[in-house]
Simulated assay, not measured.
Amino acid sequence: MDINFIYQEYQEDLRRFIIKRVANREDMEDVLQEVLIKIQNNLATIKDEGKVAAWIRRIARNQIIDFYRSRRATERLDDNIPDVADGAENHNKEISICIRNIIGNLPAKYQEAIKLTTYQGLSQQQVAQRLGLSTSGAKSRVQRSRAMIKKMLLRCCQLEFDRMGNIIEYRQKGKTKYC
């Protein structure tokens, strides 16, 4: 079995698998190239040719995870960006404003922790250093912040998500001080 056979046999399935999980075509092509490189570099390790499809899918899944991890570590969000995600629809903009209002109403220590991780892109270890906390203390503070945001958001909004975590349906339950 060689890389050309695998490419011809699995290329379209791989493209469909990746594009369902990666938002834009350029990123999908980048992930696909990385998957093909990993397949080529590890092709000699495959022992059971009957499990090639599952092996390829596992490589693709791991590469998609690596793709999102690398983006999370390098992307910085400015406090003035109203969108939740690139290409966000109007309801995402409304939710984004609501979330910013919720964050603004958190106790100061939780507000600071969530802003440092979410908007400034700091790791929880960096947050710990900046705030003079242990790493587990910073992690706990960020998790509590997220839990508070989720609780407040679910009080005022009904949300439905797709399997990628994107909001596909949004309804306000009523007027609140956040939304």
Rank of each mutant, 00 (worst) to 15 (best):
I114M: 03
C157R: 02
E160Q: 13
I95S: 00
R57A: 13
R16K: 06
K20F: 10
T117D: 10
V31G: 03
F5Y: 12
K109N: 11
N24K: 13
M1Y: 04
Y10T: 03
R16A: 06
A138R: 01
N42H: 11
V22N: 04
A138K: 00
S123I: 09
N105F: 05
K38Q: 12
T176C: 13
K51D: 12
D66L: 15
R57W: 07
I168Q: 07
L154W: 05
N101W: 00
M28P: 00
L43N: 03
C98E: 12
K177Q: 10
M148I: 03
K47I: 14
Y170A: 12
Q126V: 05
A44P: 00
V52S: 02
E75T: 11
D83K: 05
Q126E: 15
D2C: 04
E89S: 14
I99H: 01
W55Q: 01
L131P: 00
I99W: 01
D2R: 02
S136F: 14
Y10R: 06
R141A: 09
L36T: 02
K20H: 07
R57I: 12
S134W: 15
L14T: 11
L77T: 08
V127P: 02
G174Y: 10
T45N: 14
L106D: 06
Q11V: 12
G137E: 06
N90K: 15
R163I: 00
F5D: 13
A113K: 02
L154N: 04
L122C: 04
M152A: 13
A60T: 02
Q40S: 11
N24A: 04
S123L: 08
A128I: 07
I102R: 01
D78Q: 07
V31W: 13
E169F: 12
E160M: 08
R144N: 11
D78E: 02
E160C: 05
G121W: 00
T45C: 03
S140F: 12
M1Q: 06
D66V: 14
I114L: 09
Y170M: 14
K109A: 15
N166R: 15
N166L: 11
M164A: 13
D83W: 05
G104W: 01
E169S: 10
D86S: 05
K177W: 06
P82A: 10
K139N: 11
I168M: 06
R130P: 01
